Amino acid sequence: MSHRTDVRRYRGLSGFAVVFFLWLYLPIAVVIFYSFNENRLVSVWTGFSLKWYAAALDNQNLMNAVRTSLEIAAIATVFATTIALMAALVLVRGKGVRFRRVSETIVNLPLVLPEIVLSVAVLILFSQIGFANGFAKLAIAHTTFCTPFAFLPIRARLQGMEMDFEEASADLYANKWTTFRRVTLPLIAPGVFAGAMLAFVISMDDFITSNMLNTGGATTLPVYIFGLIKQGTTPELNAISTLIILVSLAVAALALFIQGRGGSMTDT
């Protein structure tokens, strides 16, 4: 290995990396640690206890917020991934597509616009047309800003895939739908799954849009947690945060596992 590319030879880099990861993960570790605090005061440790996890799981309002977030995230993920997949197929595999760059910019526009602008625009639109269903408003809005997050990994997977297998399928007299179902989709499945997981996490994490479109019976988990913070931080909030961290790690591990298997299968 060349001395220029061996990062271990740069003085102070290891210490900087340690400081960086401490700065990044130490607050998370503190939240997890104090979620087991028996005392109601977060900063005063009096003993180990799991009662705040039991209290969080017994909190009906919290469970309703979790259910609402999961339902909205699932709906947004399905529609956003489907739209992103169709857009990627047209823009990457389509022939004779006019204004390709403009179309890609339009698809990725929610990434460029500040979320508050998009939220206000959606709120005004729903007010003008008299659309009052809070759950449906959240599902539509989440689908809108989740679509570009699902689009990017799917497009990258399609761009990195050669057309040899699709051309071979056409040579064997398979129609376009059969080629897509039996050849293209299995090869880009890791990208589709990565886009879906990214859209799901973004939807679950959203606060600004969910808070602006929040109505009775459609309170998402981030909005509910924000309401708890205004009342004061308790170990129950730490327990909720710890559970969210564990679920996020499980989803990320599953996504990496499936992507790794997909990549190894493609190589073989």
Score class of each variant (00 low, 15 high):
101 R>I: 10
215 T>Q: 13
37 N>R: 06
184 T>Y: 09
206 D>R: 02
86 M>L: 15
31 V>L: 03
217 G>S: 03
142 H>T: 07
203 S>W: 01
109 L>M: 12
57 L>I: 07
194 A>L: 10
90 V>C: 13
199 A>Q: 08
212 M>T: 00
247 V>N: 00
209 T>R: 02
101 R>C: 11
5 T>A: 14
199 A>M: 00
133 N>Q: 07
200 F>D: 01
12 G>M: 02
174 A>D: 01
13 L>S: 00
205 D>S: 13
221 L>H: 07
91 L>T: 11
229 I>Q: 13
12 G>H: 00
185 L>V: 02
50 L>K: 01
164 D>N: 10
125 L>S: 12
206 D>K: 07
252 A>R: 12
179 T>D: 00
186 P>W: 02
107 V>H: 04
120 V>H: 03
191 G>D: 10
198 L>A: 14
221 L>S: 11
104 E>S: 06
22 L>C: 13
238 N>S: 09
106 I>D: 08
69 S>N: 03
61 N>W: 11
36 F>H: 10
75 I>M: 14
156 A>R: 12
268 T>C: 08
160 G>T: 09
227 G>H: 04
74 A>D: 03
17 A>H: 07
24 L>P: 07
146 C>A: 15
168 A>Q: 09
168 A>V: 04
132 A>Q: 14
54 A>D: 13
84 A>K: 06
4 R>K: 14
162 E>I: 04
69 S>Q: 11
268 T>Q: 13
44 V>R: 15
136 A>E: 13
218 A>T: 13
252 A>P: 06
53 Y>R: 08
18 V>S: 10
76 A>W: 00
219 T>A: 01
184 T>N: 01
250 A>E: 05
29 A>M: 08
7 V>L: 15
69 S>I: 05
20 F>Y: 15
